[in-house]
Design a protein around this nucleic acid. Structure first.
Lengths: 135, 135
DNA sequence: TGTACTGTAATATTTATAATTACAGTAAAG
DNA sequence: CTTTACTGTAATTATAAATATTACAGTACA
């Protein structure tokens, strides 16, 4: 996987710490140690998934869309997931081989089961509990 | 993640289908649709983890090291895993920020829990059951 | 002694990820 | 009504990771 889950959780933790104050993408980028445009892109995604809200214009910024105990990490995961947990081959296996012909489907089925287990587990983690660890 | 889990499972499935006959890396590469050197590298790793055995020299090749019902996909996963399930940021977060200073450790702890859940789940998948799907 | 393999390292290529730049749009404040 | 400080988003460039390729030494059988 890539770093998107980390960045999203980092953003949400900072927004939680701000307790409703609007926070700028510049500030967030400073703590994450990356650049504001990338953070805004991730914020855009989080907003699309209903986890944060934003305000444009001068004195604008970002805040959580709901209370931190309602932000489950399963939601965050769903918001950023893009690749299979068990990975994915770049090349199509050989369709002339009985194994090659079917293996992708079988691996995909298995991946689905694993992902369900992950999401079920992540359902028990929420932002409120996570934030508490920092104090 | 990358394609290593796929390749390893593909290899093992083909070796299982060969029922003890030695199989060459060339043949494996043909079904997987990649090149033999890469397959041998993966075979080397699987051997290191006790899942296959190899024979050098002319008429050499590869076969399973144990019966397919004893090859759990949790073992395969352990053999190829390298990155965190929840990903990892490239940059160190800002140590001057209370959140940035601690977040990596907290994310790592969470990742550990998720990974344990994945492995527990993968423990129920074995090569024998997987191979059956192909007939 | 030739042949058909494995084992492994070094290098090149491709793809994925992240960083940067740029600028239009918006709203507050003077 | 203009400046200022933000967001939103796209386009481009840079960097890192993954995979492919090449090469060749080592091994065992015939």
């Amino acid at each position: 996987m890539n770093g998107r889950f980390h960045i999203s959780v980092h953003i949400l933790t900072l927004l939680d710490a701000a307790k409703g104050e609007l926070v700028s993408s510049d500030y967030l980028a400073g703590s994450i140690n990356t650049n504001p445009a990338l953070v805004r892109k991730e914020l855009s995604n989080l907003r699309k998934h209903g986890l944060i809200i934003s305000k444009e214009g001068k004195a604008g910024g970002y805040m959580l869309a709901k209370s931190p105990d309602q932000i489950r990490f399963a939601d965050v995961y769903e918001a950023v997931k893009q690749t299979a947990i068990l990975g994915q081959a770049r090349n199509e296996p050989n369709p002339k081989c009985p194994v090659g012909r079917q293996i992708n489907q079988h691996l995909k089925d298995m991946d689905k089961e694993i992902e369900d287990a992950v999401i079920k587990k992540l359902y028990d983690f929420n932002l409120a509990d996570f934030s508490e660890k920092f104090y």
